[in-house]
Design a protein around this nucleic acid. Structure first.
Lengths: 204, 204, 204, 204
DNA sequence: AGCTAACCGAGACGGTACGTCTAGTCTTGCG
DNA sequence: CGCAAGACTAGACGTACCGTCTCGGTTAGCT
């Protein structure tokens, strides 16, 4: 993904339209800087230097630093499955492992997402972008509970939204406190807790 | 607490020891800026300007921006009770309401804590300080579960650490996604979920 | 001359040859910008924007900003007479009034020429163009002295080149120090000074 | 004067007051850049780089590029005499040689002054500064004529202001057309012209 | 009682990054 | 092939903070 991080190639305009080579070089550079120096060293200036791009080229396509971060994050998505494992327990574990904790452990996904969350705490635009994205992800994940209800695994009153947010919150907390690794056992514990609550058939 | 935010008074040295008036003026200014302009406008320079203090005076006592943020946060603490309500359910609700969500809704506590978390994502020192603080808070909160075990409300195998982290994660997630308000019903749902799991007597 | 400064008309290519409409639109825009915003606001970018022309179109025909300026200046020329008034005094006054100070007071001529001189101080190409132009003008003006010698108004040893340069220098100085206006009386004084020197019949 | 152009020394603050070492390093660097690269290469950025100074340090003390140029120019002044030679002819030659043409030929004085004139053509503040300076210089030089009148060399009606401006204009013209050198003979011719006019006793 | 050490406000210092502007080059697609 | 359009690299613009430093002054506490 970061194949051209020291791209010494000369990259001119390709006419009156966006040059995908530049776009990729910028995203590559952004990713590489986050990887090597973390959020603290991540500046538009540094990205431009590394990508051998002009600053205006970056500002033309990404209005804010966070927009660039979000784009870097988007490049990682779509690869991991979000399967119907046939059981609530399996689905919840897959959710944590494939979409949250496990996903963030892969490459820079976690680093980038941490940066986005941090950025959103001080910048309103970033906040709106992140919140919209996150709300969508949660809504999507609530299908897990709908499937479980269809299967009869949980009662219709079971509060799916809260379950999903509990899992997401747990994962965010692990991410933001630098404790993603060695979470396997705790993931099992969390899911077991949810399953226990589900078996009691309560409305939440 | 912010009684002297426009302190026009002249505040000289009081000799070879720390001047508490300066210390307070700086913390007041920091708080006021966070209140009025948010994390984005929060800079040492701005705090010094507003507090009519010299920058070195700030750097002498707070090595980093985050240290100052942590101090601002500390000023809010200690007031809210952390009672033994006599039941696990009561204790958990009190934990969320008095120590987490409810507490953060009060004045600037939430804003400041959000800022600290954000800062910690890019600054290692800040991260260590926050993580140590947070770990301590969780350990302390686990007493809730110990008390419940002593009462016989939950089995000895109940995974208290995970429960506390689920609640903390839920609260962080609400804080960081700007959804602290209108959480009362969801707090009840979360606690009900935990109680349901506890009643099943599982190891977690 | 500035008839199409807001040229909203669509101006396409007229095939494989230079489009005079574009050329004029560019010169018009350049002139208008100099008029309204002065040399400081005069950029190729601004000219292209105003003329609704592509930057390459400008660069194709004018290699430098100064070349464009010189072209704008040239459009003003040729209209004023450079007559043989029959006397040295009349010729000198006509020179100052028609070719220098009086000419520069007309419309933007002075503004444009000031800009060219300024440009020439930092750009070698511009300097060469300006100097060649100016040298030619002086040589031409020296005919005034030749005519006076033919008439017997001054001796053959009279240093015509220095006289012309004195007048040119005086005019440049007025132009560059923003004092073109109210020069009439001073023009008379300058010419009287030259006439007095001439009458003494000295070699200069 | 440019003794520390590659000043590798570390130059910290000397407290809450202007550091003359920085000031000198900046002026040295500005001078060196003008010398080596001319006005075209003269940017605040380049000066800061060469002086190993921060850009804000330059902007703190010199609001515009021209202000810096003027300061560089001022460092050259005051050394050359402006003597009373006892005769109008001698005074005029000394004026041209010591204060104008001859002075500008020395080191970078001419280059710097050319740059100032150029800058003044596009920047109003620069123009005001230059015009005020220049007006003062001319007023001062008019003492030459006053002295000649006191000596009885010229009549009381002799127009001193115009004479001084003729000389200044001649010198500016030589400077701005890159023809300072080999002016000695022409200086003599110019002065002879003025002397001839003076002898005729005309009012100008 | 005098000296010293640490404090205080102030603000300059060398830097880095910001977001905007222009320079000059390039390519596309229409006419 | 000329044209409008607009992308590209490059780098200067002027501003805001960063964290460090020295200044000149003040006062507490030790000698």
């Amino acid at each position: 993904m970061v194949e051209s991080e020291t791209a010494a190639v000369k990259r001119a305009s390709i006419g009156a339209k966006r040059n995908p080579a530049s776009q990729n070089a910028i995203l590559d550079a952004a990713e590489a800087i986050l990887n090597e120096e973390g959020l603290a060293g991540f500046s538009i200036e540094a990205v431009a230097r590394r990508a051998r791009a002009g600053k205006p080229t970056i500002y033309r396509w990404w209005p804010t630093k966070t927009a660039l971060l979000l784009d870097v994050y988007q490049r990682f998505k779509n690869t991991r499955p979000f399967p119907d494992t046939g059981s609530l327990e399996g689905d919840l574990k897959a959710f944590l492992n494939n979409q949250l904790i496990g996903f963030w452990q892969d490459r820079l996904c976690g680093t980038v997402f941490r940066s986005i969350i941090a950025e959103a705490q001080g910048d309103d635009d970033a906040a709106q972008a992140l919140f919209a994205y996150e709300r969508g992800r949660r809504k999507f994940a609530e299908q897990i509970i709908e499937r479980a209800k269809a299967r009869g695994e949980v009662s219709a009153e079971f509060n799916g939204a809260v379950v999903i947010e509990l899992l997401a919150g747990f994962a965010w907390h692990r991410l933001l406190t630098g404790r993603l690794n060695n979470s396997d056992e705790d993931i099992d514990a969390v899911v077991a807790m949810i399953m226990a609550a589900a078996k009691n058939g309560l409305r939440s």
